[in-house]
Amino acid sequence: MAAASTAGAVELSRDTLLEMYERMVQIRIFEDLAGKNFAAGLIPGFVHLYAGEEAVAVGICSQLTDNDYITSTHRGHGHCIAKGVDIPGMVAELMGKSTGVCKGKGGSMHIADVEKGMLGANGIVGGGIPLACGAALTAKTLGTGGVAVCFFGDGAANQGTFHEGLNLAAIWNLPVVFVCENNGYAESTPVRYHCSASDIANRAGAYEIPGVVVDGLDVFAVYEAAGEAIARARRGDGPSLLEAKTYRFYGHFQGDQVTYRTAEELDQYKQRDPIAALHVAIVDRGIASEDELATIDARVTQQLDDAWTAAKEAPFPELAETLTDVYVRY
């Protein structure tokens, strides 16, 4: 398979690279299986898949710890996995089982793990942006050294919350990195229609914070650009906006007929598959062999098969769970 150039300037250790590769493969297989099992009727509700965008979540979250926060979107599985949320718990959550990370009460669009700093996938477009400012305010006020990374789509960049959030982060000098995952579409609407800016990163200028465009299919490029923004936030130098140009390999949600994209366009992007590109880079640079990568692929496949088996066998929540968790105390 032809690979995009990944001649990134960053030098990454073997361990880091292989971890990033494994995370990206986890996301891809998680999503492929989610798509398949949705079609098989095992996942109720709406499912939005992240396949194709793995380099963004992994290139960024591999530089974060549990002490850092992220906010996510309806297309949140990749962010969750990259931030270390328990995969079997995620699979069970997709099925609405009691062993799910949210006890089956949230589902795909609300997977969260606050202990890991994962403040939730989000069913409200733009809903996570002010929340990330709040998390950054906590980190700053309590002096934890943590940062908040806020993932959102191109479509979300038109919500008021985006503009309010950027301004707030700028005037309060908050340690937040805004990451716009521009995959070209908001549902069936192309970004060239819905957005006034040719680059969403340009909007950073209005708030006088750094705005950077990066190739979201190139994990090295994402790693490098995000590294600078994260370091800047950690240093106390305030927020930045990173726009990652990326692409989703599936439709907006499972069931979308995707009449608004051409097969050629999809094909072009599949030629630049971020995982295939990383694979080639790892082998070409002599970091690991084909066999070693195949071992990782097999391990992840097994891990996900096991997770699905366990989730299928797990019970649904007790009906009484419907009434719990509304308040801490009432």
Binding site: C102, G104, G106, H110, F316, P317
Partner: peptide, 10 residues
Amino acid sequence: HTPVPFSPPL
């Protein structure tokens, strides 16, 4: 007096 739960039986 709760939000709507995801899990189908709930």
